[in-house]
């Protein structure tokens, strides 16, 4: 199943996003950024496609810096950056 993954380079940005997403009552999981995406050790938020529009809205409203949004297939380990 393909999920959506928002990758952050900074833990502080990931924590800000987590706080805002919780406030909005969203369903998501925190996960370490897959090594395929980044050699450094960032943090990511994994959520469903249906939650993504609200997540993007919150990220831009709160000016939270993220590395990118990816379509993530964890079973195959294929992560494709979305536009």
């Amino acid at each position: 199943m393909t999920e959506r993954l928002i990758a952050f380079d900074s833990i502080h940005q990931a924590l800000r996003a987590e706080k805002e997403f919780l406030k909005a009552g969203m369903k998501f999981e925190l996960a370490p950024t897959p090594r395929e995406i980044s050699a450094s050790c960032g943090q990511s938020i994994v959520l469903s496609d249906t939650e993504l529009p609200l997540a993007i809205k919150i990220i831009s409203r709160e000016i939270i810096k993220c590395r990118g949004v990816y379509a993530a297939d964890f079973s195959q380990r294929i992560f494709e950056k979305m536009d």
Binding site: I37, Q76, E80
Partner: peptide, 12 residues
């Protein structure tokens, strides 16, 4: 690649 034991990230 995925079936050959590699993880993949794709950027366009």
């Amino acid at each position: 690649a995925a079936s050959s034991g590699y993880g993949v990230s794709i950027e366009n």
